[in-house]
Nucleic acid binder design. Structure first.
Lengths: 329, 329
DNA sequence: TGACCGAACTAATGCGCATTAGCAGGACGA
DNA sequence: TCGTCCTGCTAATGCGCATTAGTTCGGTCA
């Protein structure tokens, strides 16, 4: 002991020698000296209890944070999150205790959740359980979702990728190359990201005045007369390319295939798809920044980051035969 | 409120209706009902403060947990750690707030460390700052190091890879193929893992009665007359193979090259090295298990896991010319 | 009828800190 | 000499829980 009160130590530790409270330089130095000698560190638990914050950001994922298969779709997000947390001087709490039950998905509020130990939380996953989402809202837990989310009993704070204009731009590019019959292959619903892509496709088709088909699966694709395919995910694109090649079609000479973003499903390919890049790392960074903002000023931030178009080599001008047969419809 | 005291709620929440304390089933059900309706969750901070544990394991790494380059050397460890933490019902706290200063390494006890929020800690990194290590010991913070560590003012709890017998086995295998002059290329010190590999090499050489050279770098390797090279790390192995090929040597016909474990440095190669596999995932798992044991029963566990030999294709019988010229020394 | 006991709770305390109100002591002006 | 103000510090309180030592309220038994 230095002979001073616990209060004084607390004040010195927190540098609270401002207006209201005063500590003489000699006392401060003496306390600091002892702190240095003993290596005293304030108990974070008690500190958090009194201060009502821990400088900890929670990260909730529906999948394993460290996938056994190596880096995956979510890895770049996490890179950004870690970078930004480091800058913010925050630690990251991974909710690994939320076990993945038999056949069930990980849930946020399972049993005694430690989520409130975190000042706020970043949510990651293609889809997020609606119940979890509304629970977060009603409980008033600060959070930011990575990926746009529809309202869940109230506006959801998020940072997403701005798919519609991106997909639309691809449609326009295809139209400029003479394509007049385009197909979108994929569910177009379920995850918001899918819906947004389909929306961009639909908007683009309407804006350019070309024909647009929405196929849930690739079945019937090759009888549809479409000269360019928009694959909802990279994995879809890979599958379609293989199907096309199996039919003796050359990509992109006979059929252009665009991949709309990376794939959440594991897939390896060396095809240089035309499409766009989801700014995953930036989204991760931005999510942490927005979370910090929410904690400081509140609010419900909603941001969409632009996707960068990828030139690739799977988009070519419409084949001549199709260009002539196009008007026949 | 249910009309009962905070104590009762606490007892119900923790299922403490055992011998000492009694709660009538009706009261319990009533409390549980209200808990379910309101979605009450105990504040983990306060709980931790009173209970002196948080069910959180800290993970300290000297590098970024999520490397920008994708999965790296440390990834498999983390996979195992996450798996085991999930089973143990613990969350993981990543100390991202310990910034990497200009040119400095990450330090565990930088400023207001949140390390004590974790019940214990897993340490990851090729080398660990000796000061950090002894500080952990003197502060009595439960931890387990992934990778063997020499004492730091006391025995260090660890789970490591058992390099010496593994390397020794490789030496014996090479000897069985006729090699009589072997070279170890690498520092052989610094990290414990390097020292252990060199020790295994030295032991193996002594046991088989062959000649063993220790070269710090690959300089002079090709004039040494060695017919088989033990590369300390994968990256070293790759470099040596390239040097050998540049000299017109065929691997492994003219020169056998063994790689001692994966590389902590980023390197990509498709060479199918003969060597061994570091059981990284298992080590991660085991570290968490040992940490749990330390928390429950104390002690200083020290374990070495066996490495699996990898057949590969860079080890061949000694070349004839060398076999004959071998005895000339 | 009073002593005794067990069942079913609750009051009180402490965890280690941050924070607020307040206190001792000296300087200073009237 | 007394009141006032400022400086430099501390006592006390609360954060939300777990835990321990009661306390109350029927019975039960002698």
């Amino acid at each position: 002991m230095t002979g001073v009160s616990q209060t004084t130590v607390s004040l010195v530790l927190n540098g609270r020698a401002d207006g209201e409270v005063r500590i003489s330089p000699e006392t401060r130095d003496r306390v600091l000296q002892v702190i240095r000698e003993t290596g005293y560190v304030a108990d974070p638990a008690a500190r958090g209890l009194a201060e009502r914050r821990n400088r900890i950001y929670g990260v909730f994922t529906y999948e394993a944070v460290f996938p056994a298969e190596g880096a995956d779709f979510y890895h770049p997000f996490l890179v950004g999150i870690e970078e930004c947390a480091e800058e913010a001087g925050c630690d990251l709490l991974l909710f690994t205790s939320a076990k993945v039950e038999q056949g069930e998905r990980r849930r946020i509020f399972s049993g005694e959740s430690r989520i409130r130990l975190a000042d706020g939380c970043v949510l990651l996953g293609r889809t997020i359980d609606p119940d979890d989402l509304s629970r977060l809202l009603t409980d008033g837990i600060p959070f930011v979702s990575v990926g746009r989310r529809d309202d869940a009993g109230g506006p959801v704070p998020y940072v997403g990728a701005d798919y519609p204009p991106t997909v639309r731009a691809l449609v326009e590019r295809a139209a400029a190359l003479g394509h007049r019959r385009m197909a979108y292959v994929g569910a177009g619903k379920g995850a918001e990201s899918f819906a947004d892509r389909l929306r961009g496709f639909t908007e683009g088709v309407a804006a350019t005045g070309v024909e647009g088909l929405h196929l849930t699966t690739a079945d019937g694709l090759f009888d549809s007369g479409a000269t360019v395919v928009f694959a909802e995910e990279l994995a879809d694109g890979v599958a379609i390319v293989e199907m096309a090649r199996a039919r003796g079609l050359d990509v992109p000479r006979d059929l252009s295939i665009l991949a709309l973003g990376a794939s959440t499903r594991p897939v390896s390919t060396d095809i240089d798809f035309t499409g766009f890049r989801i700014p995953r790392r930036e989204m991760g960074r931005r999510a942490v920044e927005l979370l910090t903002g929410v904690l400081e000023r509140g609010g419900v931030p909603q941001e969409l980051l632009a996707c960068e178009l990828v030139e690739g080599s799977t988009l070519a001008p419409v084949p001549d035969t199709d260009r002539t047969s196009g008007p026949r419809t």
